[in-house]
């Protein structure tokens, strides 16, 4: 996936708050510690962040509060001006375009879902979802027709005329999601969309999110403070701390090769057999000794029973049926605990 052409790119993005931030960030600030920044009366929200998101990819930025994840996403949407660096969306450098072009970009190409839903209290579900089209001057009948489709998409049919404060949190966020999809954006930003919801509703909404993405194939930047959520949803992910990206990669890479103790602390409690795929731990050097093939893309959990019961080395095959390695039950052991 990393080989695919990037649709959204951040190159050396800095966001420093405080007077005279620009000089400091680009000059000695590159190496400065958080303490040195605060000694200058500055706060480094984002420090030299570079990342790229491919078309149709779910990219998750995970970090605890104050890690700079929300600041970074606000840099990507132009809500914050960058202190240094570039953000490119579909090749457009959003910090080098006029206000007018930025408005156009926001109307056509990007949208955002907010942690606290950010619904307009005076509009119905229908009115809220049609709102982004209303600001573009789309005629009423047309925008409401589109909005109704979105309502159906997120499973809120029958609630068109409800007002936000008549809905549960989960329902409100469905409205937020539908509203962010009405303009058919290419890049979809979700800022901790499920953090304000109860655990059960959160799981339901995560599944809903995956269902939608399977249909829509948006380019997604998803912010969360929940490592489990990141592992569950991400194609690729980045973990931030103190404004810096600590590690970036697929969920499996995080589990197999945590970059440092900070990451290891998060991965410790993750059930590895659920995350890891057979392909990523298959042994390439030893030849298979039985004829019970395993799919490389299957999770360890789903094949565990079979591998433990089986004798010898199972062949591991890719989608085309080619053998790419083998797996013995002794090699599975470390990942099942």
């Amino acid at each position: 996936m990393t080989t695919q052409k990037a649709f959204l790119e951040c190159k050396g993005v800095w966001k420093v708050f405080g007077p005279g931030a620009e000089d400091f960030a680009t000059n000695p600030g590159g190496e400065a510690s958080t303490e040195e920044f605060s000694a200058h009366g500055l706060i480094a929200g984002v420090r030299d962040a570079s990342l790229s998101v491919a078309k149709g990819e779910i990219f998750i930025i995970m970090g605890l509060s104050g890690s700079g994840k929300s600041t970074l996403v606000r840099c990507m949407t132009g809500l914050h001006e960058l202190t240094a660096g570039h953000v490119l969306i579909d090749g457009i450098d959003i910090n080098n375009i006029s206000e007018k072009e930025l408005v156009k970009l926001r109307r056509k190409k990007i949208s955002m879902v907010f942690q606290d839903f950010a619904l307009l209290p005076h509009l119905t579900v229908l009115g809220n979802i049609a709102f982004p089209l209303k600001v573009q001057g789309v005629p009423r009948a047309e925008r409401e027709a589109t909005a109704r489709k979105m309502i159906e998409l997120v499973g809120l049919s029958g609630r068109e005329s409800y007002y936000p404060d008549e809905l549960s949190g989960g329902q409100q966020q469905r409205v937020g999601i539908a509203r962010s999809l009405t303009t058919q954006p290419e890049v979809w930003f979700l800022d901790e969309p499920f953090s304000a919801l109860d655990p059960l509703i959160r799981q339901e909404m995560q599944s809903e999110f995956l269902r939608l993405q399977a249909m829509l194939h948006k380019t997604i930047v998803f912010i969360t403070h929940d490592f489990d959520e990141a592992i569950r949803l991400a194609d690729r992910m980045a973990v931030m701390k103190d404004g810096e990206i600590v590690q970036m990669g697929t969920p499996e890479e995080f589990i197999l090769n945590p970059a440092n103790d900070y990451i290891r602390e998060f991965t410790k409690h993750i059930p590895k057999d659920k995350v890891l795929k057979v392909g990523s731990i298959a042994n390439g050097s030893d030849a298979p000794t039985n004829d019970q093939p395993l799919q490389a893309s299957a999770s360890l959990q789903s094949v565990a029973e079979q591998v433990i019961a089986g004798d010898g080395r199972h062949p591991v095959i890719d989608a085309a049926g080619q053998v790419i390695g083998s797996l013995h039950r002794s090699e599975l052991g470390p990942y099942l605990l």
Binding site: L79, R106, M112, A118, P121, H122, V135
Partner: peptide, 30 residues
């Protein structure tokens, strides 16, 4: 008015006039 509502107005690509009279003022109506 919650910050996110203000941000939503900008992300939706609303003009300054729209942000004031369609988003902020109605959101603060109470």
């Amino acid at each position: 008015v919650p910050n996110s509502v203000k941000e939503f107005g900008r992300i939706a690509g609303a003009t300054r006039f729209q942000r004031t009279w369609w988003v902020l003022v109605p959101a603060a109506r109470k």
